[in-house]
Structure formats: structure tokens, C-alpha cells
């Protein structure tokens, strides 16, 4: 923006002259480049959102008259059991995302060291992310069908069909089955992001650590973890947000029936089957606020976990020194 301030120009230059000057041209080019993405962003993100925000104050269907009802829709969202009851299911998905991230981080660490056939493993594990979510839904529908793929594989392993649960029918485990599909789909993507970050760690650090006698776990704890904390934070935030808005697995595999209707599925049902567009819009806004809250909480949490983000390296080094000193002291004491 210095261009504009500097072009608060020597007096006397007309607008036309300024436009032809180097400064003017700079501004013009900037506007010309920015206007397209900004226009797209506005038209396809902010405008529809504003419309939806408006809808949330009306009692309306897709077609027909609208009636302004003020905050009534929001009050209903908080009164209805099914709206917030559905959020409880998000706990399953959150637990799933923890498993997913730990698994991804573990595999990423292993694969970032030299492993035979590492690329092939990476490829296989990343592959599910490339498959369309709806297709994955159909795959798993058959996967979990009684006596089909999963049961057959388990029978090879010596299980009896009679002892196996009904993966989608049994309400105690059907949400876990659904979460498993989402873990299967996304952990590869998380892993690739982690590997990318781990690759950027200076390899001299490992060498130095090795010379100092650090084992792999210590390398992970003191070198890798601190270096990729930004990516870890990002992945956690994305996963938690994703688990609040889980939609595809329950929608495609079980149609939200049998106690698997997540917040999004309930919202879809209300908007499209019951045609209560205003109420569904209010639900969407409430979910947005919840996601905001969750994100801010996580930000605070990570601030606490990775204290002093800026001079973390110094800090870590100091800590390391202290620990080494303690170790040395203990050894000497013995």
C-alpha cells in the first residue's frame, strides 16, 4: 500500500497525469489483478452467505412467501433435541481425528527416515484421499454389509460370523464404523502434509543428534515435533472443524438413519425434506459460531502447549541443555 500513500502526490499533477505515472500504473495493475479473485470470492462466498444469514430470520420454504420471525429460528435450534443431540456424534469424529493424527504423525515420522519402498507406501496411504467421498461411501456400504467384505476378511482371520457385530446396525458401534471410514480417507492426506514439513527440517540436526547419542524417539521429540508444530496445529484445527461438520459418511452409508445423523445430516433433512429453510440457515449460523469458538479455543490451547512461539528454538535449546546437564549430573552422581 506504500504505492498509494506515496502517490498522495506532489500537488499540481492532474489525475490523468498521475494515472500515467509509474505510481499510477502500479495501482492500476494491482487493482486489475485483485479484482478478479475478489469478485469471485464475493460473488460465490460472501454474497450467498449474507443471503443465508438473512434467510435465518425468516419462516420460509424454497418457493413461496416468507415471513419474518426474528430470532425464533435460533431459539428453536437450541430447543430441539435433534440439533444439539447430533453434535454429540461429533465427539466420535473428534476422537477419530485424534487417532487419525497420531497415526499420520507416526507413519510420517517412520517414512521420513529411510524406509524400503517408502514411496509406494506413501502412495497407497494417500490414495484414499483422491477417491470421491460419495464413492467411498458406497464402497464402505458394501464393505460393512453382513457377510460381505469386512466379515469375510475377519473370517479368514479365524473369527466366527456369529460372533461378529452388525457394523452398521448395532447402535453402539455404527458411529465408530462410520468414523473409521473417515479416518481411512483422511489420514493419508495428513501424513503427506506431515512428511512435507518433516522434510524441511535440516538433516544436519539429525546427524548432530545422532552424534550426541539421541535415539529415534528423542529425535522425534526434540527435533521433529518442535519444527513442525505449525503444521500440527493446522491439521488439528482442520480435523476438529471437519468432525463438527461431518456429512458424507453418514449421509451416503446410512442416510443418517439409526442414530448416525450428524449435525449436517439433520440440517440437510430439515432444509430439504421438511423445507424449513429458515431453521436450517439458523442451524448453519449456529454451527459456524461453534466452529469459531472451537478454533479460538484450540488456538489458545496450542499457544499454551508451544509456549513462546517465536523464540521457540532458543527455548528448546535451553531446555535441552538443562536436561542434558541434569542427565550428566545424575550420571556423575552415580
Amino acid at each position: 500500500m506504500t504505492a498509494t500513500t506515496r502517490s498522495a502526490k506532489p500537488a499540481g499533477r492532474t489525475f490523468g497525469q498521475w494515472l500515467k505515472s509509474r505510481d499510477g500504473q502500479k495501482v492500476l495493475v494491482m487493482i486489475a489483478f485483485m479484482i478478479i479473485p475478489l469478485a469471485l470470492l464475493f460473488t460465490f462466498t460472501y454474497l450467498p452467505f449474507a443471503e443465508m444469514f438473512g434467510f435465518s430470520f425468516y419462516d420460509m420454504k424454497y418457493i413461496g412467501t416468507r415471513k419474518f420471525v426474528g430470532m425464533k429460528n435460533y431459539i428453536k435450534v437450541f430447543q430441539r433435541d435433534d440439533c444439539f443431540g447430533a453434535l454429540k456424534l461429533s465427539l466420535y469424529y473428534m476422537a477419530g481425528s485424534v487417532v487419525q493424527l497420531v497415526l499420520a504423525l507416526y507413519l510420517a515420522t517412520i517414512l521420513s527416515f529411510k524406509v524400503k519402498g517408502g514411496s509406494i507406501f506413501k502412495g497407497f496411504m494417500f490414495f484414499p484421499f483422491l477417491v470421491n467421498g460419495i464413492a467411498i461411501g458406497f464402497i464402505f456400504k458394501f464393505f460393512y454389509t453382513r457377510g460381505f467384505v469386512f466379515d469375510t476378511v475377519l473370517q479368514w482371520c479365524g473369527f466366527q460370523l456369529d460372533n461378529l457385530p452388525y457394523w452398521l446396525r448395532d447402535k453402539r458401534i455404527n458411529n465408530i464404523s462410520l468414523v473409521a471410514t473417515s479416518v481411512w480417507r483422511y489420514f493419508g492426506q495428513n501424513m503427506v502434509l506431515f512428511i512435507g514439513a518433516i522434510m524441511s527440517v535440516d538433516s544436519e540436526l539429525y546427524e548432530a543428534a545422532m552424534l550426541d547419542g539421541a535415539n529415534k524417539f528423542q529425535q522425534f521429540k526434540y527435533i521433529i515435533m518442535p519444527s513442525i508444530k505449525t503444521i500440527i496445529t493446522l491439521n488439528v484445527i482442520l480435523s476438529i472443524t471437519g468432525s463438527l461438520s461431518a456429512f458424507e459418511p453418514p449421509y451416503v452409508i446410512t442416510d443418517g438413519a439409526n442414530g448416525t445423523g450428524t449435525y449436517f445430516v439433520v440440517m440437510n433433512e430439515i432444509a430439504h425434506t421438511q423445507q424449513k429453510v429458515g431453521l436450517a440457515s439458523a442451524m448453519a449460523i449456529v454451527l459456524l459460531l461453534i466452529i469459531f469458538a472451537a478454533t479460538i479455543l484450540q488456538k489458545l490451547f496450542f499457544k499454551y502447549v508451544f509456549k513462546n512461539a517465536e523464540d521457540e528454538d532458543l527455548n528448546a535449546a535451553a531446555k535441552r541443555d538443562k536436561k542434558l546437564a541434569k542427565l550428566a549430573a545424575r550420571k556423575a552422581g552415580r
Binding site: 492500476l28 495493475v29 487493482i31 486489475a32 479484482i35 478478479i36 469478485a39 464475493f42 460473488t43
Partner: peptide
């Protein structure tokens, strides 16, 4: 060209 593009986008909006 740039100006034209910009104008078009604004108008379509």
C-alpha cells in the same frame, strides 16, 4: 485489456 476485464467483472457482479 486489464481495464476491460476489471470493468467486466464489476458489471457482472
Amino acid at each position: 485489456l486489464a481495464l476491460g476485464m476489471a470493468a467486466m467483472m464489476t458489471l457482472s457482479m
